[in-house]
């Protein structure tokens, strides 16, 4: 179990490292482009290395600032955007007690518990570390699930926290979001700065090129990476959630219930779409690791849980 978590932490570092490299590469390309477009006096020494390094440094500073911000207040941001309210123990005794119990089972500090008033059943976990994490469920989930199903869902969410999936997704989503945000700022400024002399035309070309690159990262590459990550981790969280609750039946029944229920998330959808300027295509994949709307398909997940149930005789 501990080896698994250690491996996950290492993988997180590798993914983030690769992402940073891509990000720095964009900085380098933008720097070189800037150099190519900027009018240099004839005979002056080449400024290419300088511009290239400036580009890389700018990219690194931006990425570092965004990551630092995420690690400091990403959890709070996600929760407030989703419209989550802290769940009092008195108002939601069952939910609160189950989270408490599951945290004991993992030997982790208890995460904060939040509820979103939304008829669509869903749940998500977020947080940069188990000590500063939160589990959120919708009121719709509480309405349709019995104790056993809820336990299965919450065990799955606890596993995301334990495996540090939530931190990885927070950081990666921030970087993707940053790329998308910059891209749209650049598009806009390119449109508005139209028609200001000859060098202005070249500047606009540069801005368009940078915006195109950032768009590729923000809108195509980023979401693909994120989806791949999240798909792997969903299956892992299913497995380790069942390892925690020792009761595959709870999660299986919960997944069946969710499969039958297709009410879209009103509030979270809207809010997440607004938040993720990066991601209008996959608007259902926010900065948070949400349980039920990522691949693999629910039927597949149920099937693999049933295989586990047969192997597991507890």
């Amino acid at each position: 179990m501990y080896e698994q978590i250690a491996r996950n932490k290492r993988r997180t570092i590798v993914y983030i490292g690769v992402f940073f490299l891509v990000w720095l590469g964009i900085g380098a390309v933008v720097g070189t482009l800037y150099d190519a477009f900027s009018p240099a006096p004839v005979g002056a020494p080449s400024t290419e290395p300088r511009d290239l390094i400036v580009g890389i440094i700018l990219a690194a500073v931006l990425a570092a600032a965004a990551t630092a911000f995420t690690l400091r207040s990403g959890t709070r941001l996600v929760l407030s955007v989703a419209g989550a309210r802290p769940a009092e123990q008195a108002a939601y005794p069952q939910l609160y007690h189950l989270v408490e119990a599951l945290a004991l089972g993992d030997g982790l500090p208890m995460p904060s518990v939040y509820v979103v008033q939304d008829p669509s059943p869903n749940a998500f976990a977020t947080g940069v570390s188990p000590a500063r994490s939160a589990v959120t469920v919708t009121s719709g989930l509480l309405a349709v699930m019995d104790r056993e199903e809820l336990e299965g869902v919450l065990a799955h969410e606890m596993s995301h926290i334990k495996n540090y999936d939530t931190r990885l997704l927070l950081v990666v989503s921030t970087l993707i979001g940053l790329a998308g945000l910059l891209a749209s700022i650049l598009w806009r400024s390119a449109l508005f700065s139209r028609g200001r002399g000859r060098s202005g035309g070249q500047l606009i070309l540069l801005i368009f090129a940078a915006a195109a690159l950032l768009s590729v990262v923000g809108f195509i590459l980023g979401p693909v990476i994120r989806m791949a990550l999240s798909r792997r981790r969903e299956s892992l969280a299913d497995a380790s959630g069942v390892e925690l609750s020792r009761n595959p039946a709870g999660l299986i029944r919960a997944l069946r219930t969710l499969q039958a229920n297709d009410t879209p998330l009103a509030r979270v959808n809207h809010a997440t779409a607004a938040m993720c300027i990066d991601d209008p295509l996959q608007h259902h994949q926010g900065r948070v690791h949400r349980l039920f709307d990522t691949h693999p398909p629910i039927a597949e997940r149920i099937a693999s849980l049933e295989r586990m149930a047969q192997g597991l005789s507890v």
Binding site: Q94, L98, G105
Partner: peptide
């Protein structure tokens, strides 16, 4: 809840 917690604490 207390049964649950005892059970999970026991497993850990």
């Amino acid at each position: 809840a207390s049964e649950d917690k005892i059970e999970y604490a026991r497993r850990y």
